[in-house]
């Protein structure tokens, strides 16, 4: 009888210990994300320097990386093989973000010129444009394309939608009670999702500029810089200073966080942007390690 009790207590203790250990490890293991691919220059001497953005052309199956430090754009295929290096005849100055529209034009945010530049590949021509909104100079930062070109203005922290043909402002997305405005945004399922770093919240807008919902994020975030919306609607927030990704459900409740600091494969140093590709990959642009890491479940 006595021995039986001891065995039962022992089992209970082991179970409790296992649960405690499992609880600690859960937040990382629950993610299920595995390193899959890296986009980088194979030739070390010609490596990227401070890449800042990724654009994914789902139709062609290409990744485009903005190599800000070397003033060029690089394209890769789905297997991570380098296809082209493009510097527009050394015409780019501190490119920061880019999109490629259905017409084939490439739009690039050039911070060095404070412009939104249009590259017409067929005509081999670059047209720079200085944007304004209600008379004030716009400092383009992040860029997305749908029917309109959506530009994050770094100076005001608002997102402005421009007509791509005339570059006239159509709509603005402004956070009503943000201290500093937005730092990143995504267009997903007919909604615009914008990340407010200072107040640690995500705002969801209709594309006509109406604010639908504000999701306050909890205090786990250190320095959020980018967001992505997962296929199941989960919100992925990139924390630059914690060097990891924090995942929230659609109501803004914390689910788990994963990745950590370092220079080895799958680790982050100064990550700057995250995006989902159409093939289930979660892509992290790492400025500090000068590469794009792609993770899959």
């Amino acid at each position: 009888m006595k021995n039986r009790c001891s065995v039962q207590y022992g089992l209970l203790l082991a179970l409790a210990l296992s649960l405690a250990l499992a609880g600690q490890a859960w937040s990382r293991s629950a993610s299920g994300w595995q390193w899959s691919l890296v986009l980088k220059q194979d030739k070390v001497s010609d490596a990227m320097r401070m890449p800042t953005a990724l654009f994914i052309d789902g139709k062609q199956g290409h990744y485009y990386v903005v190599d800000s430090g070397r003033n060029r754009l690089l394209s890769f295929d789905r297997q991570g093989r380098l296809l082209h290096i493009f510097n527009a005849g050394k015409g780019l100055k501190t490119p920061y973000d880019m999109v490629r529209t259905d017409s084939g034009d490439i739009w690039v945010v050039e911070k060095g010129k404070n412009s939104l530049s249009r590259i017409d590949l067929k005509a081999r021509r670059i047209t720079t444009a200085t944007l304004r909104y209600r008379g004030a100079l716009v400092y383009p930062d992040r860029l997305e394309a749908a029917d309109l070109l959506y530009v994050l203005d770094k100076a005001s922290g608002r997102i402005i939608a421009y007509d791509p043909s005339s570059l006239k402002a159509r709509t603005a997305f402004t956070c009503p009670d943000c201290a500093s405005g937005f730092v990143d945004f995504r267009i997903h399922s007919g909604r615009l999702w914008a990340l407010d770093r200072q107040d640690r919240q995500i705002c969801r807008f209709r594309l006509d500029g109406t604010l639908e919902k504000t999701l306050p994020l909890d205090g786990r975030l250190n320095f959020p810089v980018s967001l992505a919306i997962g296929p199941s609607g989960s919100l992925y927030v990139l924390d630059r200073h914690s060097r990891d990704i924090v995942v929230y459900d659609q109501a803004g409740r914390f689910r788990y966080r994963f990745l950590d600091r370092g220079i080895s494969r799958g680790q982050l140093y100064y990550p700057v942007e995250i995006r989902f590709d159409p093939w289930g990959g979660l892509c992290v642009v790492d400025e500090g390690n000068a590469r794009v890491e792609i993770f899959r479940r």
């Binding site: 911070k111 060095g112 400092y139 770094k154 201290a179 500093s180």
Partner: peptide, 13 residues
């Protein structure tokens, strides 16, 4: 100095 990769241009309106 504002026309650089990272700047401190941050203030809503």
């Amino acid at each position: 100095q504002m026309l650089t990769t990272h700047s401190h241009l941050t203030r809503q309106d």
